[in-house]
Amino acid sequence: MRGLTVLRGATAVELVGPLWRTLPWRPLAAAGALGLLVVGTPAATGAEPAPWQTLLLLRGAALAGALGLAFLLDDPARHLTGPVPTPRLLRQALRVALVAPLAALWWTAVLLLAPSASRPPAGEVTLEAVTAGAFALAAAALAVRLTDEARPGPFVAAALLVAAVLVPLLAPEDWALFVQADDPRWPAAHERWAVLAAALTAAAGCGPEPLGRRAGR
Rank of each mutant, 00 (worst) to 15 (best):
V16T: 10
G60D: 08
R151F: 01
A140S: 14
W107L: 13
G216A: 15
L4Q: 14
R8H: 15
L57G: 11
L23E: 10
A204N: 09
G46R: 00
T11D: 14
A176W: 06
A10W: 12
V110K: 07
A129N: 11
R78V: 12
P120F: 11
G17D: 09
G216S: 07
W175G: 13
V167M: 01
A143N: 00
G60Y: 13
A33S: 08
A189I: 12
T108G: 13
P210G: 03
P49C: 08
A132C: 15
P27G: 00
R88T: 15
V39C: 04
F178D: 12
V84P: 15
E124N: 13
L94S: 10
A66Y: 07
P49D: 11
T126F: 12
P101V: 11
R91Q: 06
F178T: 11
C206G: 06
V167E: 05
P184V: 00
L19S: 14
W106Y: 10
A141F: 03
P120E: 06
L105A: 04
A50S: 14
L69H: 06
L28A: 03
L98F: 06
A203K: 01
A12M: 01
R151C: 10
L146N: 04
A150Q: 09
R192M: 02
D148C: 03
L111A: 06
A61V: 09
S118V: 12
A158F: 10
A202E: 04
V167S: 11
G40I: 01
A181D: 09
W186G: 02
V156W: 10
L73W: 06
W20D: 05
A136T: 07
L72W: 03
A134L: 00
L112Y: 13
L177D: 09
R213P: 15
P187V: 01
D182F: 12
P51S: 13
G9V: 15
W107R: 03
L161A: 05
G3C: 04
W107D: 08
W186L: 01
R8W: 15
G40M: 00
E191I: 12
L166W: 11
D148M: 04
L137G: 14
G216E: 13
R185Y: 09
E149V: 08
R213Y: 12
L146T: 14
G207D: 08
G216T: 15
P208E: 02
A181M: 05
A43L: 09
A140N: 02
P121L: 02
A117M: 04
L161T: 11
M1C: 08
D75P: 07
A30L: 00
E128I: 08
G9R: 11
L69C: 15
L80F: 07
G3H: 12
L111Y: 08
L146M: 12
R214F: 11
A44V: 05
L89S: 14
G17M: 00
A30V: 08
L142K: 13
R21S: 12
A93T: 15
P42A: 01
L69E: 09
A204V: 08
L196I: 14
L15F: 05
Q53D: 04
P152I: 01
R145Y: 06
D75A: 10
A159H: 07
V38E: 02
L63T: 03
V130I: 14
P187Y: 05
A30R: 05
R119Q: 09
A181T: 12
